[in-house]
């Protein structure tokens, strides 16, 4: 039997180690946020949200086109990717069995692990080359390829958590399986599914690499899907490597806005997850 003092000592040491590990995780996040806040806050103004970048040499300007472009890209990527991801998950849980389902799950996992620059190259060869030009559409396709596996797997996990007794209850009322899958199972899992969607949006909102040779970026307003379009991460990238002090400031401001959007999306996803109530 070890002495009480020894056990107290062990307890103290291990607790200290865990606190240190927690700090090690939190410190980089805190440092990043504080640094971006320090560098970016001074450049945030109304202009940032309403103006497009000024030509070289002129001061001021903002990233309104980048914000709009990112929003449009995410919206289009969602329109393409969410139905595929969500319905694919419904198929996997409700109808899929055997080799096909295993193959789909495996490819989704592989797709989720593919570096995003490769995803950009795929969209480049699929869309940019045949259409002979960079476009918002190509950017959206690249982003949707990143969203699909995330949404598919999180939705599948959520659907699996819905009790099978609900499926039986619905079938026993004479409701066909496909209606049961969509209107009972998916609806019961809705909050978890939305959480997964928000996380996937948070993920693609900050993606830069897949947009480099698809959406390309744009110094001006562009609302056409067939033309290059600005995106916040791209603008940050381009402005940060430019040799002008003014542009650097704008890049910091952009980084701050992007990080805040990430925070908001993740918090939203968290809150959704917490209020989830399933019998």
């Amino acid at each position: 039997m070890k002495s009480l003092t020894f056990r107290h000592l062990t307890n103290g040491v291990v607790t200290l180690l865990m606190v240190l590990a927690t700090l090690a995780v939190l410190t980089p996040l805190g440092l990043i946020f504080l640094h971006i806040l320090k560098m970016g806050l001074s450049s945030i103004s109304l202009d940032f949200f309403t103006q497009i970048p000024k030509p070289t040499g002129e001061s001021g300007g903002g990233m309104a086109n980048g914000l709009f472009g990112s929003g449009l890209l995410i919206l289009m990527a969602s329109i393409i990717g969410l139905p595929v991801g969500v319905l694919g998950a419904v198929y996997l849980t409700e109808f899929g069995s055997g080799k096909l389902a295993t193959a789909i799950r495996f490819s989704a996992d592989v797709l989720a692990g593919v570096p995003s620059i490769i995803t950009g190259m795929v969209a480049y060869s699929l869309i940019v080359v045949p259409m002979k030009g960079f476009s918002a559409l190509a950017g959206a396709v690249a982003l949707s390829l990143i969203m699909i596996p995330i949404v598919l797997r999180t939705t599948e996990e959520q659907l699996k958590m819905v009790p099978g007794t609900l499926r039986e209850a619905s079938l026993a009322l004479g409701v066909p399986l496909w209606r049961t899958s969509l209107k009972v199972m998916l609806v019961s899992a809705a909050k978890g599914v939305v959480t997964g969607i928000l996380l996937s949006i948070a993920r693609v909102a900050g993606e830069t690499a897949p947009l480099l040779f698809t959406a390309l970026g744009n110094q001006f307003w562009s609302k056409k899907l067939t033309e290059p379009i600005a995106a916040l991460p791209l603008q940050i990238f381009n402005f940060a490597i430019a040799p002008y002090e003014d542009w650097h400031k704008l890049a910091w401001a952009g980084a701050l806005v992007l990080v805040c959007i990430m925070f908001a999306l993740n918090l939203g996803a968290r809150m959704m997850g917490k209020t989830q109530r399933l019998n």
């Binding site: 009790p163 007794t165 609900l166 039986e168 209850a169 619905s170 079938l171 026993a172 009322l173 004479g174 409701v175 066909p176 009972v184 609806v187 019961s188 809705a190 109530r277 399933l278 019998n279």
Partner: peptide, 20 residues
Amino acid sequence: PVSIRRTIGMVFQKPNPFPA
């Protein structure tokens, strides 16, 4: 089978109302 289930209803072991 769907029309069969409309004619032959079922009540389960554990009450399973739709929670949503």
